[in-house]
Design a protein around this nucleic acid. Structure first.
Length: 104
DNA sequence: AAAATGACGGTGT
DNA sequence: TACACCGCCATTT
């Protein structure tokens, strides 16, 4: 299992209505400081409905990137529609962050 | 092998 | 909130 597959697998494990941060995913994948690389994988993946990459946000809760149609705006709407709480322009990590324990 | 790239993260202004 | 910097990383060129 390479780093890339782990990242995707973790993405798929994020439940509806919850979100995870890039750094969090990087850590779960075994590379605490590879958040940047995680973003890279999100960018090249088939996007939207396929991999729920829209459930991945920046550490401060703000939405970054998203190469799918609609961009950031669309991403935010998708999250809201799934039940993710928002605090202004950012995600309310306090009650919408996905707290996951080791899945391996 | 070396340099460039980007959907990051943390800190400071 | 916005922007600039710098350190980090896997993947591509």
């Amino acid at each position: 299992m390479n780093f890339k597959d782990k990242v995707y697998k973790i993405c798929w494990s994020i439940p509806r209505g919850k979100v995870a941060t890039y750094g969090q995913i990087a850590k779960l994948a075994g590379k605490p400081k590879a958040a940047r690389a995680v973003g890279y994988f999100m960018r090249i993946n088939p996007d939207a409905p396929d991999t729920p990459c829209h459930r991945v946000v920046a550490s401060d809760g703000s939405l970054t990137g998203y190469s799918g149609a609609g961009g950031i705006k669309k991403k935010r709407q998708m999250l809201i529609k799934e039940g993710v709480k928002f605090k202004g322009v950012k995600v309310a990590l306090n009650n919408s962050q996905y707290i996951q324990k080791n899945i391996w």
